[in-house]
């Protein structure tokens, strides 16, 4: 179990984390979501006892990370953003070393072998850490976090730098671990959250902007229903017509290609305007090429929560690039 209460961290005048509170129950995977520089890493560093908080309290498995650091650390496995590997050690030596400083006393070799098997690094056991590919480094980092069978796992972007197959395997592994561990993982990849986590904490500029399950978040932001329409016709006229339909809150041009224009329509909640929209387009004598309701994805929620209007467009562009 991890509990964070009113946590703040200030670097001089700069506030990296501002009054953050959340709770992850035993066996739960909590996704920590936010753009780069939102304070994810700082929060994780506080939970793992790497640095103290300016204010507030963090408890890991019932132990306060500040007052009982050794007890808390004994129960925490941590994968930092860059896997903390010693390039001059082989994977096996490295894991043996980590096991020792993490307090593993009995059956050290068995433990190392079991973890290497679990994280698929057994085939590079005798390679030097410095010579490993990014994917292997990441997995050795994960192995290192698991070595002392901690109750709590804190994973800072565990799938960063992995290839698609490894990403799927790693997510699978994380889900398997969830039963016996409490996991906090940070990411800025949204599908990762909906696929692996039971709870999402969205953080932006050091503040929590939303805490819920991925499904509930999607539900909650379904306040206005969105619709996507593709019409073959003059954009201005179509737009005017769309606006005139009762129940339409907002209609906007998304993209124009020759005669064909894509529109986004926000409608009032709980009304289905598909028929009205279709009828209006047909009445105008234009071609209705596509019409479908748009469910607000986690991605949209994330963007709407973490960006202001002016930034949205840039981020959309980035998103497209990232998706490609």
């Amino acid at each position: 179990m991890i509990e964070v209460q009113h946590l703040s961290k200030k670097y001089g005048p700069f506030t990296a984390v501002d009054d953050v509170s959340f709770r992850a129950e035993s066996g739960e995977i909590l996704g920590f979501l936010g753009p780069n520089g939102a304070g994810k890493t700082t929060t994780m560093r506080i939970i793992t006892g790497y640095m103290p908080a300016t204010q507030g309290k963090a408890t890991v498995a019932g132990f306060d990370v500040f007052d009982q650091p050794l007890e808390a650390k004994r129960r925490t496995g941590y994968l930092p953003e860059t896997p903390p590997l010693y390039p001059d050690m082989t994977v096996k030596e490295y894991l043996r070393f980590v096991a020792k400083i993490k307090g593993v006393r009995a059956k050290l070799d068995d433990r190392v072998n079991a973890v290497m098997k679990k994280t698929w690094v057994a085939d590079v056991a005798n390679r030097h850490c410095g010579r490993l590919s990014k994917g292997y480094k990441q997995r050795v980092g994960l192995a290192q976090a698991l070595i002392h069978e901690p109750e709590v796992l804190v994973l800072d972007e565990p799938t960063a730098g992995l290839d698609p197959k490894q990403i799927i395997e790693t997510r699978q592994l994380i889900r398997e671990l969830a039963g016996s561990h409490t996991i906090v993982l940070s990411t800025h990849i949204l599908p990762e959250v909906s696929q692996t986590c039971q709870k999402v904490v969205i953080i932006n500029k050091g503040k929590i902007v939303a805490t819920d399950t991925p499904d509930a978040l999607t539900q909650r932001f379904h306040g206005t229903v969105m619709m996507f329409v593709q019409v073959d016709g003059p954009a201005d006229d179509v737009l005017r017509t769309l606006h005139s339909i009762p129940g339409v809150v907002r209609a906007s041009v998304k993209e124009t290609r020759g005669n064909v224009t894509n529109f986004d329509i926000d409608t009032q909640p709980d009304v289905d305007l598909r028929r009205e929209v279709a009828a209006a387009v047909v009445r105008g004598g234009w071609g209705l090429l596509e019409l479908r309701p748009v469910r607000m994805s986690l991605e949209d929620i994330f963007l709407s929560l973490t960006t202001t209007e002016t930034e949205t467009e840039d981020l959309e562009a980035e998103k497209v690039v990232a998706d490609a």
Binding site: R45, T48, G49, Y50, P69, L70, E71, K73, R74, T76, Y78, P80, E81, T82, P83, P84, L85, Y86, P87, V98, I101, K102, G103, Q144
Partner: peptide
């Protein structure tokens, strides 16, 4: 520089 300090400082050692 290499970040291994994070390993040492988050391990249960003084």
């Amino acid at each position: 520089r290499s970040g291994t300090i994070e390993l040492l400082l988050t391990s249960p050692i003084r």
